[in-house]
Design a binder for these strands. Structure first.
Ligand SMILES: NC(=O)c1ccc[n+]([C@@H]2O[C@H](COP(=O)([O-])OP(=O)(O)OC[C@H]3O[C@@H](n4cnc5c(N)ncnc54)[C@H](O)[C@@H]3O)[C@@H](O)[C@H]2O)c1
Ligand SMILES: NC(=O)c1ccc[n+]([C@@H]2O[C@H](COP(=O)([O-])OP(=O)(O)OC[C@H]3O[C@@H](n4cnc5c(N)ncnc54)[C@H](O)[C@@H]3O)[C@@H](O)[C@H]2O)c1
Lengths: 273, 273
DNA sequence: GCGACTTTGTGCCCGCGTTCACAAGCAGCT
DNA sequence: AGCTGCTTGTGAACGCGGGCACAAAGTCGC
């Protein structure tokens, strides 16, 4: 989301337009000389997403024994502009050494701190179907600080069946299980019609962050953070580009594929024609 | 709902440096009096993502026999601001009737046209593991104009095995199979180390749109459009919000969960605290 | 110890996307 | 026909994020 911030539904008690800002505003009441520890917090959401990417790249570097990196190197590896990278890093503090670069170890620690990864975020997956199975079996989450600790479904045949090492529980147990395992993030992978009800249950259970794979617009209290992953929308966006290309450059020159590889695609994002 | 996805992607996520413009610029060489048919094309990518959402909502309405909607109704259902919705729709033309609203049927047709859904987009999935299986078995894509017509992997045990009705082929067959089945979109669901190589093969095979699930930054020619879905990043963004909440409002008042349900969350997007 | 070089951190500008607010336009009623 | 009321479509303002370019700051060599 990139996706970026959004607006409020019309008709509603229109909340302050200020809220709309993608800015994660937290001016911090200018507490006296509390020192640098909790400096100004106002990290754009887009920057947070990139920080996660930097973290992944940095983790890889650390594993390969790389001790330090310059903003230039890191930006290339992460597929972004180096100035943007430096600005992103500046949001979390000044941990670089001018003339030298950044210490990988330090950067990893700091980004993890800002992203709240120092504390493990326990994840619950609801809807253990095709997608739920894939998520539960995926080994990449625990290693990144997101242990999947609870699975829920309504299918009687799934009850108690271990998936990825964790037995599936009934959604009626969401409150108790989520509380017991301190679930902080709920993932919804149920059919669309069940999504809102499941969401409500998770919210009632105290889960304040939800990742939704069902193609529906969820209604949640203001205190809850929702992100959605809509694969059909992703495909449609790609389709849009195919369409544009097609009717915009109808007569392409002969060679159907003259590659220009080597050209960096900034951040894995679409590059225009 | 919105939320970038990735937005934008945030986000979407997720731009190119120079080509960073989210604008899908296409000034249209001002072709003579070609009429309204292909009017000015300059639909912001963010708007395209939302159009896909409107389309889903509208399709649902059509199935329920709804004949027409006002921008207000539709915007609530889609979780966006009504003014934004109208502007988004205005990018594709003027199909509303002032004082009345929009005809559902017309809107569906027009959005499908703009998104290039009048032509089916054949999809190929590479890497038939946990995620690949889920994607191949998912029944929601064909119905939306995205038939999955080819599956590839390197695992000998998978060769020829049908998944979701389609036999898995070897990645060496990517060129021939993609050409034969007119694949326009390639989905990468391989382990990260294999992603770039697979991507290169798809590109060589003429696939110009790629949806990447592997957490790596892909290098592609300018002609190729890449979108990435990084679930770990999504979780980390959610984690960031947990962290902010935690150390920003350390002393919450007693009640651990006083819900405020009923309050619409505009677009399923994060609502600040 | 001093100068030259390198890289960070950021002030500033620019441009896109979001939002407001209203004129334009259409339907239906009188 | 004319008037009323409603909803669309959009001009204009605003604000955020992106990128440039440079001053600050630290390192390294001599
Ligand atoms: N599989 C994919 O590749 C894919 C792609 C895009 C979107 N999605 C979306 O993800 C969601 C899951 O997809 P899937 O393919 O895994 O579906 P699925 O049908 O394979 O699995 C759904 C699971 O949810 C369970 N379920 C049903 N009602 C429930 C409820 N009220 N509470 C808890 N669990 C319930 C079912 O028992 C089943 O196990 C759907 O909303 C789908 O639209 C999936
Ligand atoms: N499963 C998830 O929920 C999940 C979540 C986040 C990210 N991902 C990412 O998605 C990708 C796939 O995940 P997964 O869980 O399905 O992995 P997986 O290991 O289950 O499946 C990977 C598949 O790719 C195949 N493969 C390996 N090398 C290949 C190559 N060179 N060409 C073609 N196929 C090849 C393997 O044979 C295997 O079938 C990974 O990059 C993973 O990081 C998965």
């Amino acid at each position: 989301m990139a996706q970026r911030g959004q607006s409020d539904a019309a008709g509603r008690s229109r909340r302050a337009p200020a809220e709309n800002a993608a800015e994660i505003t937290t001016p911090m009441p200018a507490i006296g000389g509390n020192g640098l520890r909790d400096r100004a917090r106002a990290i754009p959401e887009a920057a947070v997403a990139r920080l996660a990417v930097y973290l992944r790249v940095l983790s890889g570097m650390r594993e390969q024994g790389v001790g330090s990196v310059s903003s230039e190197e890191l930006s290339v590896a992460a597929g972004v502009n180096s100035a943007k990278l430096r600005k992103d890093l500046s949001y979390i503090g000044s941990y670089g050494t001018r003339g030298v670069g950044y210490e990988v170890e330090v950067l990893v620690d700091q980004i993890e701190r800002v992203l709240g990864l120092t504390r493990e975020q326990s994840v619950a997956v609801v809807g253990i179907g095709n997608l739920g199975h894939a998520l539960a079996n995926y080994g990449g989450f625990p290693g990144r600080g997101f242990p999947v600790t609870a699975l829920f479904d309504v299918d009687p045949d799934l009850m108690g069946v271990p998936v990825g090492g964790i037995p599936v529980a009934h959604i009626d147990d969401i409150p108790s299980v989520c509380a017991a395992r301190e679930v902080t993030i709920g993932v919804i992978a149920t059919p669309p019609p069940a999504a809102q009800a499941v969401c409500d249950r998770l919210v009632e259970a105290g889960v304040e962050c939800i990742l939704n794979f069902a193609p529906v617009v969820l209604q949640v209290p203001e205190t809850v953070e929702v992100r959605k992953v809509d694969l059909a929308v992703e495909l449609q966006i790609l389709s849009f580009h195919v369409a544009r290309r097609a009717d915009h450059a109808p007569a392409e020159d002969a060679t159907p594929a003259q590659r220009v590889n080597g050209v960096a695609n900034p951040n894995g994002v679409a590059v225009r024609r």
